[in-house]
Design a protein around this nucleic acid. Structure first.
Length: 516
RNA sequence: GCGGGAGUAGCUCAGUUGAUAGAGCAUUAGCCUUCCAAGCUAAGGGUCGCGGGUUUGAAUCCCGUCUCCCGCUCCA
């Protein structure tokens, strides 16, 4: 696997109708992609694999589909409004980008350091007789610095409060803040990057409510916790699963569909009794890894990545990473989110969000273990794992390459192609009759154009696991050639057996059976 | 936002010193009737990313602009 393979994968995705650049005829829209006729099938199958593994296989996990628009206060409570508004500034010489607020905080820290130095010096000079409080209150140099610090701090706080970006830049210039890399003070303007997209709800501009497009689906689950728990008579521990779109205004969004501005998440929030969360965290870690590995792409291509730094709401966090052509990258995150979110919503909404535990005889706010996986990343992962260029020798002894998507049959967009060996003598009609039998259960495709070998290769390229070929013998004995994608082996089978063979190969059951 | 690279047919690309826009593959129709791709015949398809300038004449030279890709900053 290499960068080169990745480029081919991107081209392949477009050429065979999996992924298109959004708004392509208008020169495209950055970091937004559309799923084509094959992409949407694959994506739907991935979602089904996830959804059923959660909701069908766990009797204490139920589904939800909450709206993308939510009350704006939700994002205050969750911390998204405050935590993800970074004022950024670039140094034109070093080409490095910094957070303007961090640069100013560093300037403040420098002044503090100066004062500390004075105090240290004085301490040494006066020995035991040293009165630090008095020194700080009287020493002219300390006072001067303190004054400077206070002034800067106030200016900084005001600028942040007013969201005054020009002022932030001016503060940096006035305080001679230099770039640590280049040492120069050649700065660009300060620009604000907001994580969340905002829009207005309501018909008139002045009466409109500013609402956000959700940056994660999780909050829709948290705010519905009581609804689901009560109406579903759910007992701890239990989970709520949701698949849905989320939106993040990424500063730099690249790497194809790996990081997009509009993307889809599959999240499950598992509510547990406080104190048991780390056990459940371990349990879900294992369950989720098993879900990934059951697809058969090789255990060596997955690993856990433990988070060193934890987010403000978490007490444990781990990523499931897959070996992409461009390195190990996160596909799924598993987080122990404590009771942070529910407590925040309890506080901001003023509504009690608790669980009455009959064993304990009291109510408490449940703890949450989250599993969160990106559908698009999973899609890319499946494509990367399946894409294969095979060297082979053709019938004439010539070297040849075959491009094949070795998709798990359960996920393949098209399950079976049915084709007449030649397009006459009633063979096309026979082929269509077979499709008419099977199309209610399996996505089938008909193809009569070009040589049979060429048609097989076209199907390989979109990962179709089976090709059925109708020939003259079919008309006599109702048998067809069944050709297998991965081995290219052919079997002669009766038409009446096709349903059973397909059902066996394509049902998610065989994947679920492997799950731990 | 900065730096680098790139935009010509659906795809991959050629296009000389500035003079009627090219190939292969793909597509469509027909021929062939073939069990592992690229046989034969024909056809369709392009304001050469966009705008301006120089010129008798611009895909080509100049200026501007947009988009995409790579790197940096960010990533709950």
């Amino acid at each position: 696997m290499s960068e080169d393979i990745f480029k081919k994968l991107v081209a392949h995705s477009k050429e065979y109708g999996f992924v298109f650049q959004s708004s392509e005829i208008y020169d495209g829209l950055g970091a937004v992609y559309d799923y084509g006729q094959n992409g949407v099938e694959l994506k739907n199958n991935i979602k089904k694999y996830w959804w059923d593994s959660m909701v069908m296989l766990h009797e204490n996990v139920v589904g939800l589909d909450s709206a993308i628009f939510m009350h704006p206060t939700i994002w205050k409570a969750s911390g998204h409004v405050d935590a993800f508004n970074d004022p950024l500034i670039d140094n034109k010489d070093s080409k490095k980008r910094y957070r303007a607020d961090v640069l100013i905080e560093e300037a403040l820290a420098k002044i503090e350091a100066k004062m500390e130095k004075e105090v240290e010096k004085a301490k040494k000079r006066f020995g035991d007789a040293f009165d630090e409080t008095q020194f700080r209150a009287t020493n002219p140099r300390v006072l001067a610095n303190q004054e400077k610090w206070d002034a800067l701090h106030k200016r900084f706080a005001d600028a942040l409060n007013d969201n005054n970006l020009e002022e932030l830049k001016q503060i940096i210039i006035d305080n001679d803040v230099a770039c640590p890399m280049s040492g120069t003070k050649n700065w660009t303007d300060v620009r604000q990057f907001n994580l969340m997209f905002a829009t207005e709800m309501g018909s008139t501009a002045d009466g409109a409510l500013k609402v956000f497009l959700r940056p994660e689906t999780a909050q829709g689950i948290f705010v519905n916790y009581m609804n689901v728990q009560k109406t579903g008579r759910m007992k701890l521990p239990f989970g709520i699963a949701q698949i849905g779109k989320a939106f993040r205004n990424e500063i730099v969004a690249r790497q194809f569909i790996f990081r997009m501005r509009e993307f889809e998440q599959m999240e499950m929030q598992f509510f547990v009794k406080p104190g048991t969360e780390l056990d459940w965290f371990e349990k879900w870690k294992e369950t989720r890894m098993s879900w990934h590995q059951s697809l058969g792409f090789g255990a060596e291509n997955y690993r856990f990545h433990e988070h060193e730094k934890l987010a403000h709401y978490a007490n444990a966090a781990v990523d499931v990473e897959y070996r992409f052509p461009f390195g190990f990258k996160e596909v799924e995150g598993i987080h122990s989110r404590t009771d942070f979110d529910l407590s925040q919503h309890q506080e901001y909404s003023g509504k009690k969000i608790q669980y009455y535990d009959p064993e304990e005889g009291k109510s408490y706010v449940p703890y949450v273990v989250e599993t969160s996986i990106g559908v698009d990343r999973m899609f890319l992962q499946v494509m990367a794992a399946s894409y294969c260029e095979e060297e082979m020798i053709d019938g004439k002894g010539q070297k040849d390459t075959r491009v094949v998507l070795r998709l798990p049959a359960q996920l393949a967009p098209v399950k079976m192609a049915v084709m007449p060996l030649v397009k006459k003598d009633g063979l096309p009609e026979k082929a269509r009759a077979i499709i008419d039998e099977l199309k209610f259960d399996f996505k089938c495709q008909y193809d009569e154009k070009d040589s049979i070998g060429k048609r097989y290769r076209r199907m390989d390229a979109i990962g179709t696991p089976f090709c059925v070929t109708v020939d003259h013998q079919t008309l006599e004995d109702n048998t067809v050639t069944l050709r297998h994608r991965d081995t290219m082996k052919q079997d002669r089978v009766e038409i009446s057996k096709l349903y059973g063979i397909m059902a066996e190969a394509v049902s998610m059951k065989s994947l679920f059976a492997k799950l731990k």
